[in-house]
Nucleic acid binder design. Structure first.
Lengths: 195, 195
DNA sequence: GGCACGTTTGTGAATATTCACTATCTTTAT
DNA sequence: ATAAAGATAGTGAATATTCACAAACGTGCC
């Protein structure tokens, strides 16, 4: 990630606008105003608004990938790994709520191909880590083999996303970490094998 | 639902635009063009674009409510009821893919309060039916009592929504009914009690 | 030290386009 | 004749982007 300082400031400001006002309000006017300079100055640092969005997404994707890798490295037990990965994700979104827009939109709102592809890529990264962990858990008898790993991950990710959506929609008024832990516990209750 | 014929035509056309081009492309210009008349003619039938959206959503909500009630009435066994309700939903969205926008957006894209509230209402209707069925299933020993009914429904709806999202995003290229049935089967595998 | 020269980062005005919406006229059906 | 349903031709506001230009700063040269 070869990001200049000013570029980082801009995508941070863009993130704050997303968090506070939503995607529709992320305009060049508003962004420039938040940065304290004119709209045209934006184009000294990015060639287009699309590039700003894509840069922001890629930056976050890189950060997320790093976090996921670490979360898996620090444990051996698949149950612990799964807990850590999911818990970690909730922390991430708690700190970067604007990123939720990316997760939810996923091709619905943005006409831009490049933006959409960046978003898909992020989802794929997440999925691949989860599948890896679940497969391992099925192999060592921690998780139920009754449902294929990909399908289990689908169920996990789906309920995960829905919780985040509800959180966003409730204006982030409840503690996402706490409800997240409860969801993780419930999911584990369903997929863990009793020994 | 006191809908005039022309109004129904308009919300149907709006639905087709949503399906084919997405929410951002649902403009008065495009809608009027699809209807074969001028933009201003729209305002003979609706007072605003917002009213068109809300009418469309309310129409959907009423239809969905009717379908869900019937689906539950025709069976006694909670397992069959759950299967029917979900299967029914997949059929519905297969026939009315534009309403997926409602399911996905949920307050993210629309600035309008009225629109958002209509969307929430739809989700609440769905949820209440599912909770009813799941609670019954837990009471008669069909489903696991290890996870509260509301939380089970959360997991069901979350994975359900994600599948629909993927279907939309894949340009409806795979058979949603088939994958839906598989998901239902997987979910039941997880929540059914062995007797 | 002073000076020409290029780069970076900004400004303010102007661009074309799109949007939802409206005032005013005309057609059409009953 | 009347009222509903349409067409024409506009409105103002918002959008992303581009333009010519300028202040500040560093760098090499005499």
């Amino acid at each position: 990630m070869e990001l200049k300082e000013r570029q980082l400031e801009i995508i941070t400001a863009a993130g704050e606008i997303l968090t506070e006002h939503g995607l529709a309000q992320l305009t060049t006017k508003r962004l420039a105003s938040k940065m304290g300079f004119s709209e045209s100055a934006l184009y000294r640092h990015f060639s287009s608004k699309e590039e700003i969005l894509v840069t922001m997404l890629r930056y976050l994707a890189a950060d997320m990938d790093k976090r996921l890798r670490q979360a898996i490295q620090n444990a051996e037990d698949p149950v612990v790994q799964l807990k850590t990965v999911l818990s970690n994700q909730f922390s991430f979104f708690k700190r970067n709520p604007h990123f939720l827009i990316a997760i939810f939109s996923e091709g619905l709102m943005e006409d831009s191909k490049v933006v959409n592809e960046s978003i898909i890529q992020i989802m794929d990264i997440k999925k691949s880590y989860l599948v890896k962990v679940v497969k391992k858990g099925q192999a060592d008898g921690s998780f139920t083999p009754g449902v294929p790993a990909e399908e289990l991950v689908h169920i996990i990710m789906g309920s995960f996303r829905l919780l985040l959506l509800q959180w966003w929609f409730a204006s982030k008024s409840f503690d996402i970490k706490q409800k997240g832990e409860k969801l993780i516990h419930n999911l584990l209750t369903l997929i863990k094998l009793k020994k």
